[in-house]
């Protein structure tokens, strides 16, 4: 039974790692500030969600008698889920307020 749970947890962790790397590549490759914000904000939020689900499964299997780690991971996940998009929103909003014009197809990278 443990092997099944660990396999599913590993699947979630691997998927989370792939999404995190995708977000990181996007944050470097995208052409301007707003598109980079998009990658960094969304990629990290989804990646942490997948990784936390994987870790919660591991914690449930490894410590069946104590749910403390599960609750902590759950609340950390909820916290990042709320704060990460808000931080990205605030940064992008600040850039827009400052007059940074969004990139359009054909413009040079900046």
């Amino acid at each position: 039974m443990a092997i099944v749970v660990y396999s599913i947890a590993g699947l979630f962790l691997g998927l989370g790692a792939v999404v995190a790397i995708t977000g990181g590549v996007g944050a470097i490759r995208m052409p301007d500030f707003y598109t980079r914000c998009h990658c960094a904000g969304k990629g990290d939020t989804l990646a942490q969600l997948l990784i936390m689900v994987g870790l919660i499964l591991v914690a449930l299997e490894a410590y069946p008698l104590s749910n403390l780690a599960v609750f902590k991971l759950f609340f950390i996940s909820i916290f990042i889920l709320v704060t990460s998009p808000t931080a990205t929103h605030a940064v992008a909003r600040g850039a827009r307020h400052d007059g940074l014009v969004p990139w359009k197809a054909g413009d040079p990278r900046r």
């Binding site: 709320v82 704060t83 808000t86 929103h89 605030a90």
Partner: peptide
């Protein structure tokens, strides 16, 4: 008019 920021701050303050 920073509705998102204000709502998130209101939501997080008690937990912090």
């Amino acid at each position: 008019d920073a509705v998102v920021l204000r709502t998130t701050a209101k939501l997080l303050m008690p937990f912090m």
